[in-house]
Write a protein that binds this DNA or RNA. Structure first.
Lengths: 226, 226
DNA sequence: TAAGCTACACATACAGCGTAAGTCTGTCAA
DNA sequence: TTGACAGACTTACGCTGTATGTGTAGCTTA
């Protein structure tokens, strides 16, 4: 009689940290950051909330874990190409990862515990810049501009682009319509947002590349300076 | 007898939207965003939580309100100076406002309701760029790079700088110490963060100016292009 | 002066949050 | 067979935002 469970009807795949983190990312990707709660996450895994604590220390541990996974999705700079190409690819890869995981921006930099994917990416970027001939001081500057731009762009992309697949110009037109009453006060907003952007649309990847290249070109000139 | 209240012992200064918003900003500035709750805010004002709803629609309304106040603290670009100086000043003013109100980053761009301070600042920046001779297309690009950089820098400054007045190099040294076990894997991190930054320190205002000028100089060349 | 309206502070209650603490059960080693 | 252990579950606590209903002070109007 006791053996019944041995040939059990429900095999019950055991939970583990990886499965918890993967489900957490899926939940946040799809429902937004605020829908990532212990109870919902547990339900997603067919389990009660408290059972998760057998595999992760607490919610903060989950955040550390999924942020680390996002970092691991970013392609580190190649050592096979010139520094500018390498930095360009790494920046684009970072933007793509942050666009896939909108909830991640704002959590990437500030966490107390940095995982190996995070540290080794930072290390690789610094190494790429140093190898390209940037001085210590310039390396810090170069890193700062690039990351500020990348994270800032991702932040704006997250905040300004619609959750769904509506395109940007539709949103722009709707906003223009909403504020019709006071539009006379903002002529340039009307001209640029209401006119140009609403008509020609807006491609985030292209826009990102513009600023990125401007920054990289600017850095090139400082490569062997002070 | 009924007149007693007229010459009342407790004058009870009436609440209003402005007082609620000011207290909300003070609370968030000092205790961080997560400490801005309706109950704490009410207590700060000597009142019960639900009384706040007589003056604001809900918590989101409070957020809209305090974000608008932050926007109003940003100096719009001057029309009296050349475009680069004007853009430089408004960028610096923006960073300062975001450094004063760390909780604001991440809420500035994504809100559904834009107040007049927000709209008129956007309008003024676009106007400045158009007046400087930037084409419609270039104006969009120029705005995008600048704001991405500004917000991204503010985001990193918030996330990486300590809450208190400890200086950056102390934090860098502490982190280096924590990760001692695996530091051999990250030689460039050791060299740049552990060596250079920890020794020479880090001034955010200077660092910000470096990237800002790099971007503005890059934009100057595109001022009368396509 | 009295009636009634309005403004506004308050009290209660509810669902959902993270998680501490304790309990139950299926599996495996000795 | 027994004992240990892993891991899922239950309950409970103090938070959160806010819906709903009550009480009252003060002004307006008859």
């Amino acid at each position: 009689m006791k053996r019944r469970a041995q040939a059990s009807a429900e095999p019950r795949i055991p939970l583990n940290r990886e499965r918890v983190l993967a489900a957490a990312i899926a939940l946040a990707d799809q429902g937004g950051f605020e829908s990532l709660t212990m109870r919902k996450l547990a339900k997603e895994l067919g389990v009660e909330a408290m059972s998760l604590y057998n595999h992760v220390a607490n919610k903060d541990d989950i955040l550390d874990g999924i942020i680390e996974i996002v970092f691991s999705e970013i392609e580190p700079p190649s050592t096979e190409v010139d520094w500018k190409t390498a930095m360009r690819q790494r920046a684009i890869s970072t933007r793509e990862a942050l666009a896939r995981h909108r909830w991640a921006i704002g959590l990437m930099e500030g966490r107390a515990n940095h995982g190996p994917a995070n540290l080794s990416l930072h290390n690789a970027v610094l190494g790429c810049l140093r190898a390209a001939g940037f001085s210590m001081e310039m390396t810090v500057h170069a890193y700062s501009v690039q990351d500020s731009y990348i994270y800032g762009f991702a932040l704006q992309e997250r905040d300004m682009s619609p959750e769904s697949a509506d395109d940007f110009s539709a949103v722009a037109q709707r906003q223009m319509h909403e504020y019709q009453a006071v539009l006379d006060d903002y002529p340039h907003l009307v001209e640029v947002v209401g006119g140009y952007v609403a008509e020609s649309g807006y491609d985030y990847a292209t826009e990102f590349a513009f600023g990125l290249d401007l920054i990289l070109d600017g850095l090139e000139k400082l490569r062997n300076a002070s």
